[in-house]
C-alpha cells in the first residue's frame, strides 16, 4: 500500500514538473514573439508554480493554467499593414493572445470548437492551446473555420518541455516585418519564391507562430565572417 502511495506521489510530482517546464517554455515563447510579459511571470520558479497552481491535496489544477498577453508597441508596429487609399488607418495584424492548457482528457472537435469560440468571442487575435493528448483530425479542421476571427495554434506539452531556441545548435531567428521583407527583396532584386524556404510546421517556425509568406532572418556564427545571415521564406 505504501509502495502504491509512493508511486502515485511520484507520478504526480513528475506531472507537476513537466507541466511547469511547458508553462515556462510557453511563456518564453510568447515573450519571444514580442508580447508584453514581466520577467517574474516568465521565470517562475518551481516552488512558486506549485504554490500557485496546485490544489490542497497537491494535485495540479489545470483549470488555472491560462493567461493572456498584449502585444508590445514594437510588435504592433512591426506587423502593421501599410496604409492604402481604401484603408487609411490600418489595424495591426497582431492582437492579444490567449494561452490555455487543455483541462480535458481528449482534444476533439468539440473541445477545439469551444476554445475557438472563446477566443473569437473575447476578441483574442490568436489562441494557443496546449494539451498532452494528440488532436483529432476533425479538431484540426475546426481550426481553419475560425481563421477569419482568430489564429489558433496547438502544441503538445511534450514538445515544449525544453525551449528549442535555447539550444546551442539552433541559430537566432528573427521574423522580418513587411517593410523589411520588401526592402530585402528589393536590395537583392529577388522574387520571394527565389528565397530558400522554411516549412510552416518547422519547430522553430511554429515556435514563432510564423505564417505563410513571412520571411525569417537566420543569424549564424561563422568561423570566417563572424556573423552570417540567411533568409528563408515560410511556406
Amino acid at each position: 500500500m505504501a509502495d502504491q502511495d509512493e508511486a502515485q506521489y511520484e507520478a504526480n510530482e513528475r506531472n507537476i514538473v513537466r507541466t511547469w517546464r511547458a508553462w515556462r517554455t510557453v511563456h518564453e515563447m510568447v515573450h519571444d514573439r514580442g508580447y508584453e510579459l514581466g520577467e517574474e511571470e516568465v521565470k517562475i520558479p518551481l516552488e512558486e508554480f506549485r504554490h500557485k497552481y496546485t490544489n490542497a491535496d497537491g494535485s495540479l489544477s489545470r483549470t488555472l493554467l491560462k493567461f493572456s498577453a498584449k502585444p508590445s508597441d514594437e510588435m504592433q508596429r512591426k506587423f502593421m499593414p501599410p496604409a492604402t487609399p481604401q484603408n487609411t488607418e490600418p489595424v495591426s495584424d497582431c492582437g492579444t493572445v490567449w494561452v490555455e492548457f487543455l483541462d480535458d482528457s481528449a482534444l476533439g472537435a468539440e473541445q477545439m470548437r469551444k476554445f475557438g469560440r472563446f477566443c473569437a468571442d473575447n476578441h483574442y487575435k490568436s489562441g494557443i492551446l496546449l494539451s498532452n493528448v494528440a488532436v483529432s483530425s476533425s479538431a484540426k479542421k475546426e481550426i481553419s473555420k475560425f481563421s477569419q476571427w482568430t489564429t489558433i495554434e496547438w502544441f503538445l506539452e511534450d514538445d515544449l518541455l525544453i525551449n528549442i531556441t535555447h539550444h546551442e545548435l539552433v541559430p537566432r531567428h528573427v521574423i522580418l516585418s513587411r517593410d523589411e521583407k520588401v526592402a530585402l527583396l528589393k536590395r537583392y532584386r529577388l522574387k520571394e519564391t527565389q528565397l530558400p524556404r522554411i516549412l510552416v510546421r518547422d519547430p522553430v517556425a511554429k515556435y514563432f507562430g510564423m505564417k505563410r509568406g513571412q520571411v525569417v532572418k537566420i543569424i549564424r556564427r561563422s568561423e570566417t565572417a563572424g556573423r552570417y545571415a540567411s533568409y528563408r521564406l515560410c511556406v
Binding site: 482528457s105 481528449a106 476533439g108 494528440a134 483529432s136 483530425s137 476533425s138
Partner: peptide, 12 residues
C-alpha cells in the same frame, strides 16, 4: 466517418 471513429477513440 473515419473522423468520427477517431473522435470517439479520442474520447476513449
Amino acid at each position: 466517418y473515419e473522423d468520427l471513429i477517431s473522435e470517439r477513440n479520442a474520447n476513449g
